[in-house]
Amino acid sequence: MTTAITGGAGFLGSHIVDHFVKQGDQVVVVDDFSDGKRANLSESESQVEVREVDLRDGETTSDALKDIDIVVHLAAKIGGIGYFHDVPADIIAMNDAMNRSVFDAAVEHDIDRVCYASSSMVYENATEFPVTETQLGEIPPPDSAYGFQKLAGEYYCEAYHDQYDVEYSIFRPFNAVGPREPPGEEVGEAHVIPDFVKKINDERQHPLKILGSGKQIRAFTNVRDIAAGVYECAHSPAAANDGFNLGSSEGVTMLELAEMIWERCGRSEPFEVEKEDAFDHDVKKRVPDSSKAAEILGWEPTVSLGESLDEYIEWYQTAL
């Protein structure tokens, strides 16, 4: 069994690579290294094959996937909420091109399954929490280009299954946290935990600048837990032609999160914040119901937010 992991040199992708290798899969990493880093593969580098490919090109994508049984398709233009606002056209056009190349290759080479990385952003307009998979047919589509494009990728899965009988599974990770995700140059370029750690640990901000009210609620999931869930989505017969939330159901406000990081970075000053204008499409609450993954795949998150923050901050302070 040979599994190709597109975007496998990225933050989430590299942890998925490590998990699949530990489970005994023969793994091929497919990445153009426009964002991913070869250093992220250091744990499994000797046990994987790396194919440097621009997935926007259908011919080279087909060549890269011709001997593959399963594709875990993570490759995408992705970043924090600021990134979504800066390059919405690139997100739509480039991610769509990559999706088409991968699914066309799946048809051409009769690949057993495409395991597609969607996003919690498909639930951008949800009003009932925790969000369940069944809400996707009931809520309005996402307002952001990124959320809309990820939802379009789910339609790719269903359309290629209906027309070409391509087997698929969909996973929707909720706010992955763990080593190998650096902060961006600007606020919002990366995700919130790297941003907060940079502000608190490096810039020594006091008061800490936060976007919006700080009452926004997120549920964070250790990247190793998500990798284990992706493995089940890729391999379990029960996951065929279905989609799953992969996330913790324990929500935390951004103020609570910031204070947890403040304490773990050893700041002695009283915790104080300065509120700045939020970005458009800054979702007020995002908490999943992952009971479907528990019931069908036997998957549940095992690592607490506190443990994940300790792990991330230790990596940040030693690796960056």
Rank of each mutant, 00 (worst) to 15 (best):
H235G: 08
V252C: 14
A238L: 13
P237F: 02
A234D: 07
S236P: 14
A227D: 00
N245R: 04
S236I: 06
V230I: 15
K209C: 12
K209S: 12
V252Y: 04
N241K: 12
W262T: 01
A238S: 10
Q216H: 10
E232S: 14
G229K: 00
N222L: 04
A234T: 07
A238H: 13
I210G: 06
L255F: 14
E250W: 05
F244A: 05
E256L: 08
I210S: 02
I226T: 01
K209V: 11
L246A: 08
F244H: 02
A258L: 07
F220M: 11
D225P: 05
E232Y: 10
R218S: 05
L257S: 10
D225M: 06
H235P: 01
E232T: 15
G251Y: 03
H235Y: 09
V223S: 02
A258F: 05
D242K: 09
T221K: 14
I217S: 02
A240N: 08
A234R: 06
S249W: 01
I261D: 07
L211H: 02
A240R: 08
V252S: 05
F220S: 09
F244D: 02
G229T: 01
G212Q: 05
S249H: 09
D225S: 14
Y231Q: 12
S213Y: 04
V252M: 07
E232W: 07
I261Y: 01
L257P: 13
I210C: 04
P237A: 03
L255G: 12
I217Q: 11
A219C: 04
K215N: 12
I261W: 01
G214T: 02
S248R: 14
T253K: 11
R224S: 04
T253S: 15
Q216E: 13
L257G: 07
M254A: 06
A219N: 03
M254H: 14
L255R: 12
I261K: 00
N222E: 08
L246P: 06
D242Y: 05
S213R: 04
V230Y: 00
A258E: 03
F220E: 00
L255E: 15
N241A: 06
N245H: 14
I261R: 00
L255C: 12
A234W: 05
E250S: 14
V223L: 02
N241D: 13
G251K: 04
R218E: 04
D242W: 06
S236Y: 07
E256F: 11
S213A: 07
N245P: 03
Y231I: 00
S248A: 15
E259M: 12
D225C: 05
G214H: 10
R218L: 06
E259S: 03
E259R: 15
L211Q: 11
A227K: 00
D242R: 10
L255I: 15
S248G: 13
A219E: 00
G212L: 04
E232M: 14
D242Q: 13
N245I: 02
E259L: 08
A258Y: 04
P237W: 05
L246K: 09
T253R: 01
A219G: 10
